[in-house]
């Protein structure tokens, strides 16, 4: 963990650098442009919200930034690694060691307990004593009493807490969140976003969040707007960023 922190403080290159990104999908008759001309830099430790309406391309952008998919054109560099030139397995390896995720629909494995869900990325990354670390995190997110409950036995808010614990488990340098409060009521959403922000600060993680919740977006250091596949950044925010 310390090593990671050292790395992020000593390195001044951006965590994410996106150049001339475009993404198109071929349909039966024509081609649909989902993203075009996206260029962007996100620095280490920054928290960035990508805001836009449904269908604006924000989820696609998140997937490309996280290396879940590869763009039609342009490049994405994550922590210095050129994602589009990596094979799928190399990208998986990169994700295992440096990237955390929080999803709108939680994406917990229903057959595993809360503890096991959090242990899973630790095991995949080959980290020692995964159980100790996973317990620590679950205690941190307030679920120390519910380690052995399966997702079905947990409420939506609790499930998202487990997901947050899982996202931070392998000490990621960057965390991607896709509408993390989208499936939760206001009050619970508020609690969950508090937790997410707090952990993010504590761990010094770079946060990239997709949301259409303006309030949540406002809690991020920087906001980007996306509409019809084109990314824009309000002047004030850009100044703050640089």
């Amino acid at each position: 963990m310390n090593q990671m922190t050292d790395l992020s403080t000593s390195d001044t290159s951006p965590m994410l650098r996106v150049t001339d990104l475009a993404h198109r999908v071929s349909l039966e008759t024509d081609t649909l442009t989902i993203l075009q001309g996206v260029s962007l830099e996100i620095n280490r430790g920054e928290s960035v919200a990508i805001v836009g309406r449904s269908g604006s391309g924000k989820t696609t952008l998140l997937g490309l930034l996280a290396g879940l998919d590869t763009p039609t054109e342009g490049t994405v560099a994550l922590d210095g690694a050129e994602i589009s030139s990596l094979s799928e397995d190399e990208r998986a390896k990169l994700r295992a060691s440096r990237v955390g995720f929080v999803f709108q629909s939680f994406q917990l494995l229903p057959a595993l307990s809360a503890l096991e869900n959090v242990m899973l990325p630790l095991e995949l990354a080959g980290i020692d004593a995964p159980e100790v670390r996973a317990k620590e995190l679950l205690v941190r997110v307030g679920l120390g009493e519910r380690l052995n409950h399966t997702p079905r036995q947990l409420s939506g808010g609790e499930q998202q807490r487990v997901a947050i614990a899982r996202a931070f488990a392998s000490d990621p340098v960057v965390l991607f969140a896709d509408e993390p409060t989208g499936n939760l009521d206001n009050r619970t959403g508020q609690d969950v976003s508090d937790l997410l922000m707090a952990l993010n600060r504590e761990q010094g993680t770079t946060l990239v969040m997709v949301t259409h919740d303006e309030q949540l977006a406002a809690r991020c250091g920087r906001q980007l707007h996306i509409e019809a596949g084109i990314l824009t950044e309000p002047e004030s925010a850009r100044e703050r960023a640089h």
Binding site: D89, A92, F101, L109
Partner: peptide, 16 residues
């Protein structure tokens, strides 16, 4: 398929 997608996201390579 959902489980596999999640495992891949969490960094399990396809060989794994």
């Amino acid at each position: 398929r959902d489980t596999v997608a999640l495992l891949k996201t969490l960094g399990l390579p396809s060989k794994g």
